[in-house]
């Protein structure tokens, strides 16, 4: 298994539980949709899987590494080298051009491949936009750059949090198609958080969260 959640518990600082005894596994190359109401714990699960946050109890392993055993630099190194993230808000670096944003994660991870980046830019329809700054790109274009940034590092696991939540229907469909195609081409696993049943239906598996538990 690439990613496993084993009896994971997580509470907010006030003590209110967010995740209760959640266990889940995701194999290499597999795609999984995580659905649920607002506040059900979807994003928290994604953050825990991305080593952005730590569990209260239980364990998460990624590619055989137990995340609770890692210190802050260890978790940062894991984020650089083993996984990539796509956010609803795109979260591009505003001071860098689209091209610089696209290659940023790969260069950070020390695995920058200019040909692969050029291929990604071409696949994502960004070849003519690489010199533009994020503020001069549409939402759909920005999200395509974010997907390119995530895939440029050839991650084992792609984590996406409502990647089409800020896009209109057409842009949303384009972005999802591209992301799924790239995941399939690279053999990465995908854990995608979404409200949309339609999007969830296009992935291999679907897990529904309710009240912090898998329903």
């Amino acid at each position: 298994m690439l990613l496993t959640f084993d009896r994971v518990q997580k509470s907010y600082p006030g003590g209110r539980p967010v995740l209760r005894d959640v266990s889940l596994s995701l194999d290499r190359g597999q795609t999984l949709a995580l659905t649920g109401e607002s506040g059900s714990g979807k994003s928290t699960m994604l953050n825990l899987a991305a080593a952005l946050d730590i569990v209260d109890s239980g364990e998460i392993t990624l590619d055989g590494v137990a995340l609770s055993q890692l210190d802050d630099p260890g978790r940062a190194a894991l984020r650089r080298t083993s996984l990539s993230l796509v956010f609803q808000q795109f979260n591009l670096i505003p001071s860098l051009t689209a091209g610089q944003n696209l290659s940023f994660h790969a260069r950070l991870a020390g695995c920058h491949d200019p040909d692969w980046c050029a291929h990604l830019a071409q696949r994502l329809g960004l070849s003519d936009l690489l010199d533009r700054y994020p503020e001069n790109l549409s939402g759909g274009q920005q999200q395509r750059v974010a997907i390119g940034r995530a895939m440029a590092a050839r991650p084992k696991l792609l984590l996406a949090d409502e990647p089409t939540g800020n896009l209109d229907e057409t842009a949303s469909a384009t972005v999802l198609d591209l992301m799924l195609a790239l995941v399939a081409d690279t053999g990465a696993a995908l854990l995608l958080v979404t409200h949309s049943h339609e999007i969830a239906a296009r992935l291999d598996r679907r897990v529904h969260l309710a009240g912090g538990q898998i329903a």
Partner: peptide
């Protein structure tokens, strides 16, 4: 924070 958080998410520690 909105400028730093993505860099942190991409693998830099808070200390760095």
């Amino acid at each position: 924070l909105p400028q730093i958080a993505p860099i942190w998410a991409l693998g830099l520690t808070r200390a760095e």
